[in-house]
Design a protein around this nucleic acid. Structure first.
Length: 853
DNA sequence: GCAAGGTC
């Protein structure tokens, strides 16, 4: 039987498609990469019965990067990034997606691509094709091997229709994405590296380990700074409002609105007031009643979800999407990333509604709708991706924790609102005449709350009704006065407004908008204030003003769409890929060169707000070259700076740096420092000079004394190493001599930590080795009354792994805040031998040799 | 250490 291999963009879609196409009769198994599943069934295709095998990727298979040597920030001039070679790498190496696809496609006759129907999806089609091309039974060049399914909704009609009407993947669209990737990479990285190195090399209090530039994040920041500038340059203006208070016939007071609203000239306003003051009564000249409608919402898409999460629930878009993702994988809501606000024609609205009818929160309202019949949802926009976001099963408050519940509550209420009636009210406007001047008052009377019973935050307040007046009635004027007011500056941009601006200008996508907002906040360009308003920091303001000074296009919101217009030429086959790419790269290279040449313009702004390196930080430890104190700059990235030598030395990050007993490095005379990521983290002594300029070939840049191969220095690996690491290949467990009284050994490669001899006064590594395992012996000393040794001994030597009297005092851990991607702890256990000791070296020199293989 | 775009 022939095999048709089919690939979707994500595992959930593969499952839905398989279910539809097989009429629910498919078998499923987990794929070798642990993330993707394979669904199989037999069915008709091209006039015969074939075996269908459907799986998915997880988004892009590949990612673009510069070839290795161009990733060295110290040796590469950023301008080279506009022309240097690039390569495609696996986007998530641990998924081993290429080999997974090649394996599952083996021996297939047809390849049917079910990727999302957008340009990114088209690009992923070709990533899949290149992954499976050697696995197919026939060449992918053959005309009837590779097919593309085009679908605009995940419905039975659409999906089955797509299978019987297959097309071909669109190479032009895919190529336009290739071009976009290359442009973003070259432009973003060139500007980012240049700015970062330039300003970090000059200023000590930037508090930013990275000063990034990007075609999406920078215009995003631009919006926030633009509002800041509007606030700063705002000049308040005085204006006057004529306020009239009349009596109703039941004795209440009503303040009326002046038809002229306001006057910016006091004399004129005063003149009107004097005219009105001539009268003691206002004539009711008209009472108009009009039925008005507040429309129920359209079906929910991602951007609206993020807006409401930010403005209504106080959740940032990034956080909100993480929670939405979780609700989705737990089966509470439908796929949360979609642009569509229109339910598919055959969407089972009643089915979804019925799931909610026993809710303790909104079951009552739901049952009402079921009884009265649902209102047809408003027409929305169908982007052809996923259906709108809806609940998919009932959750009660106790099923979900805080934010997850808040988000689910909103999604459910929003859905119910879309099938509810509109809110209807009567708007009554009473018009009063006083001499030449007209005044009004307007009130609302609720006729039908409709959807606002479930979206209760949109319901009317109680005091919005207007008192009854009848036409021709005379109302007593209680008071006439002129109120002096001032125009107010706008407030800072809310996150919700920013999302709207980004959407409007096509900056980012529904999936990347939260990422860009998160970026500008994490990079310290904006802070999130109360009400989730975004206030730019001095750094953010200077960056934007700097671009505006040198080349305003760099921060213009139109820049992204201008580039995309070029890319669309490729997508539509109207221009040659290479020609467009070269042309656009060249433009940005010229912009880059101009920016570099004129960086002084931005630097002048930095000078005003930031302090030069030489004036930053606190005197700390001595420089080995000039013997003067260097300054410790704490702002990210923390550094040491010698103002006399005008040198900056990088430091290990994310921990505390202290002076280590005023000891010195024998090689360069720099004062030794000790770095620690806290009591449960890693720690080691280091020389600030060797850390940046490793003295030995085998020592990597960014290493401490625990990786130094100095033959005699008492702080080197040679003197403080105990044994090869019990977990990783090639690492050595080294005593941190500065860690007491919470003594610890740490691996100099991985994040294994061994806590030992708590509260001991002194721990030293001895010359001898353990006869059993070859580890260096250790000597421990306790104060008399603090001894934890057997018989309250104050001093003892032995092997931390093999000496039985030591084992109760030794405990293995993993450093907290271990780097992402590292393996999870494998449980407690101090004795390496228990898991099969990985070849303990026989002696110190062998140990060193083993370390550097 | 960098971009933006997919997705987990």
């Amino acid at each position: 039987m022939k095999v048709a291999f089919m690939v979707a963009e994500k595992p959930s879609l593969a499952a839905s498609l398989a279910n539809i196409l097989s009429n629910g009769k498919n078998s499923s198994r987990k794929g070798s990469n642990g993330s993707c599943s394979i669904h199989e069934w037999t069915g008709p295709f091209h006039g015969e019965t074939v075996h269908f095998r459907m799986t998915s990727v997880c988004g892009h298979v590949m990612t673009l990067d510069f070839i290795g040597k161009y990733n060295n920030w110290d040796r590469v001039d950023p301008v080279e990034l506009f022309s240097c070679p690039t390569e495609k790498k696996e986007a998530v190496p641990k998924l081993r997606m290429q080999s997974f696809l090649a394996h599952e496609a083996r021996g297939s006759d047809y390849l049917i691509l079910w990727l999302d129907c957008d340009k990114e999806g088209e690009n992923i089609c070709f990533e899949v094709i290149s992954g499976v091309q050697n696995s197919m039974r026939r060449s992918i060049q053959s005309p009837d091997v590779v097919f593309r399914a085009h679908f605009s909704a995940i419905t039975e009609k659409d999906i089955k229709g797509a299978l019987t009407n297959l097309g071909k993947p669109n190479e032009n669209e895919a190529r336009s994405v290739d071009a976009r990737q290359e442009l973003d990479l070259r432009i973003g990285c060139a500007f980012t590296r240049f700015q970062t190195k330039f300003f970090q090399g000059k200023y000590g209090d930037l508090d930013a380990s990275l000063i990034s530039y990007g075609p999406c994040q920078t215009p995003t920041l631009g919006f926030c700074v633009q509002r800041h500038d509007e606030i700063q340059t705002f000049k308040p203006e005085l204006y006057w409002v004529l306020q009239l208070v009349v009596h109703t016939n039941d004795g209440r007071e009503v303040t009326l609105d002046w038809d002229r609203v306001r006057s910016f000239e006091k004399e004129i306003a005063t003149m009107f007031m004097l005219q009105v003051k001539e009268f003691s009564e206002a004539v009711v000249v008209a009472v108009t009643k009009k039925e008005k409608t507040k429309q129920r919402p359209q079906a929910l898409n991602t951007v609206e979800l993020m807006r409401v999460a930010s403005s209504g629930l106080g959740m940032g878009p990034h956080h909100a999407m993480q929670i939405a993702e979780r609700l989705y994988t737990q089966g509470y809501i439908s796929y949360p990333r979609t642009e569509t606000t229109h339910y598919p024609e055959n969407f089972d609205l009643m089915g979804v509604l019925k799931q909610q009818q026993h809710s303790t929160e909104w079951g009552f309202e739901v049952r009402d709708i079921i009884t009265d019949g649902i209102s047809k949802p408003r027409k929305g926009h169908d982007a052809g991706d996923h259906p709108p976001i809806t609940p998919t099963k009932l959750a009660n408050r106790s099923d979900l924790d805080g934010d997850a519940w808040k988000l689910y509550d909103y999604i459910a209420r929003h859905f119910i609102a879309t099938v509810s009636r509109d809110c209807k009210y009567l708007s009554t406007t009473v018009t009063f005449q006083v001499g030449s001047e007209t005044f009004t008052c307007t009130g609302k009377t609720l006729l039908d709350p409709g959807y606002t019973t479930v979206m209760h935050w949109q319901a009317f307040g109680k005091n919005e009704t207007v008192p009854t007046f009848t036409e021709g009635e005379m109302a007593n004027i209680q008071d006439v006065k002129l109120v002096e007011c001032q125009t107010c500056p706008p407030d800072y941009l809310t996150e919700a407004e920013l999302i709207t601006l980004m959407e409007k200008h096509g900056i980012g996508t529904d999936a990347s908008i939260p990422v860009h907002i998160n970026n500008i906040s994490q990079r310290n360009y904006v802070t999130v204030a109360s009400g989730r308003r975004l206030i730019p920091t001095p750094l953010g303001i200077i960056l934007v003003h700097g671009y505006q000074k040198i080349d305003p296009e760099l921060v213009l919101p139109t820049m992204r769409s201008a580039v995309e217009e070029q890319l669309n030429l490729i997508a539509r086959g109207q221009a040659n890929f290479t020609a467009v790419l070269q042309h656009t790269v060249e433009i940005f290279k010229q912009k880059f060169l101009y920016f570099v040449k004129n960086i002084e313009g931005m630097d002048q702004l930095f000078e005003v707000s930031f302090s030069p390196l030489a004036a930053s930080g606190k005197a700390h430890s001595r420089c080995g070259k000039c013997r003067r104190y260097m300054k410790y700059i704490q702002a990210k990235p923390s550094r040491m700076h010698c103002s006399h030598c005008d040198e900056t030395y990088n430091l290990p990050q994310n921990g505390n740096v202290r002076i280590y007993k005023e000891l010195k490095c024998p090689l360069d005379d720099f004062e030794l420092l000790s770095w620690s990521a806290g009591a449960k983290g890693k720690s080691y002594p280091f020389c600030p000079y060797c850390f940046n300029h490793p003295p030995f070939r085998e020592m990597r840049k960014g290493s401490g004394c625990n990786a130094c191969t100095h033959p005699t220095c008492p702080h080197s690996l040679n003197s403080t190493g105990i044994s090869s690491c019990i977990e990783c290949e090639g690492g050595v467990l080294v005593l941190d001599p500065a860690s007491g009284p919470k003594w610890k050994l740490g691996c100099n490669r991985c994040d294994v930590i061994i806590h030992l001899f708590d509260d001991a006064q002194k721990v030293t590594v001895e010359d001898g080795v353990c006869m059993l395992c070859g580890a260096q012996l250790v000597n421990v000393e306790y104060k008399q009354d603090k001894s934890k040794l057997i018989n309250e001994a104050t001093e003892m030597s032995g092997c931390v792994f093999c000496s039985p009297y030591f084992t109760p005092l030794v405990e293995k851990h993993r450093a907290v805040s271990r780097p992402p991607g590292s393996r999870a702890p494998r449980g407690r256990g101090g004795r390496g031998r228990s898991r099969g000791r990985p070849r303990p070296p026989k002696d110190k020199m062998a140990q060193l040799a083993a370390y550097f293989v």
